[in-house]
Design a protein around this nucleic acid. Structure first.
Lengths: 205, 205
DNA sequence: GATGGATATTTTGTATACAATTTAAAATAA
DNA sequence: TTATTTTAAATTGTATACAAAATATCCATC
């Protein structure tokens, strides 16, 4: 768990640009100019190029511009997400470890009692635990990539606590705990569907 | 459908390296040295680096080496694939266009009558059509990426025609044509499961 | 005022040079 | 021999310079 003290410029550049996109400092549609970013960070263009390429692969940048995902894009992401997480929830009902289950419960509890930041982190972790429990690196990787795009959307939404979200998490947790696989899958899919609709509605405003 | 006459070096490098990996000229586990590849192609390291980074994102290269996927890796890929293609088959049964359906039938027919190369291409296209019919770019993108890894495996297997493969394709096609969504999904999942097992068995030899 | 084309500017793509790191090799001690 | 430290070689990471391409600017023409 020890982080390498890697001070590689391209890693730094990647994190820097990524954070600025996700935080909204770099607005959607903004064109990213290699030289400007390089100067801004006091490094050369080479590592900046690397990181931009990587972010392009991840879907946060398209044609040198910060992505500006449409409603349809979000629907597409959620269609895949529903598939993966529905499966994962089903899988968990049978195979999840006691340890992971306990962590899951903890996320639900924090969702009820924590500060805004804690709640947000716990809700994110709730889904991460479930997907992570599949022990399928391919699935986890796809999930991670989608998270960025989803976050880009949610950010605009996140201050408004969605009603019932925690209750839904609790129900999913219960279904998993009781090994009700199909129920867990159904609840997860419902949950994500509601989340999608909430995001889309808030976008219009 | 007109290809850009792009003579960008990094595109060329990408295709060159990718083809050499998929064809097997660059064996699994081989370390890719930027300078050697650059010299080999008569270009500088810069575009070679770009293409290696891209191939790393795609999963064909890991830590400067050609990937050497294990049985488990293939299982993980197929777990995701089954999920996506099962959904896609289900979706097709309701929403596929007549045009796509006709192309699907064509793939089945070629599977019975074509040359080895034609059959291989048709079988690949069969799955591409079904996934493509979802009109979900996110799903299509994930599918495409997995294809490379799958191909890497199948290549060692491909000369041995798997029995019943075409019949399975035909049955899936029929289920889609008759709008039997759940049946199409079930058949697709069975089909992929058999394919996976066939691959894994052949690997052992 | 709009349109089209030549010119200038910006930005990206590529090559090369050098620094930092990693990896391999050699030499020495146990 | 085996292990361990030192040294050398290979390889990657970064900076910089220049070429090619894309974009914007300006001016003439309609």
């Amino acid at each position: 768990m020890t982080k390498k003290p890697t001070q590689l410029a391209y890693v730094h550049a990647y994190e820097y640009i990524r954070d600025r996109i996700l935080s909204g400092e770099l607005e959607r549609g903004t064109k990213l100019v290699e030289e400007r970013l390089a100067e801004e960070m006091g490094i050369s263009r080479t590592p900046v190029r690397d990181s931009i390429r990587k972010l392009e692969q991840e879907g946060l940048i398209k044609q040198k511009c910060v992505v500006n995902p449409s409603d349809m894009d979000l629907r597409h992401v959620f269609q895949v997400r529903t598939l993966l997480e529905g499966f994962a929830a089903n899988y968990c009902a049978t195979y999840i470890t006691d340890e992971a289950l306990a962590k899951l419960k903890n996320c639900v509890d924090i969702g009820r009692t924590g500060t805004i930041e804690e709640v947000m982190a716990a809700n994110k972790e709730f889904h991460e635990i479930i997907v992570g429990a599949t022990n399928n690196p391919v699935m986890i990787d796809i999930f991670d990539r989608m998270q960025s795009i989803i976050y880009l959307f949610r950010k605009t939404v996140v201050l408004h606590k969605r009603p019932l979200l925690i209750e839904e998490h609790h129900d999913i947790y219960e279904a998993i705990r009781q090994h009700h696989a199909d129920e867990a899958e159904r609840l997860m899919k419902e949950h994500l569907q509601l989340d999608l609709e909430f995001c889309l509605n808030r976008m219009k405003g």
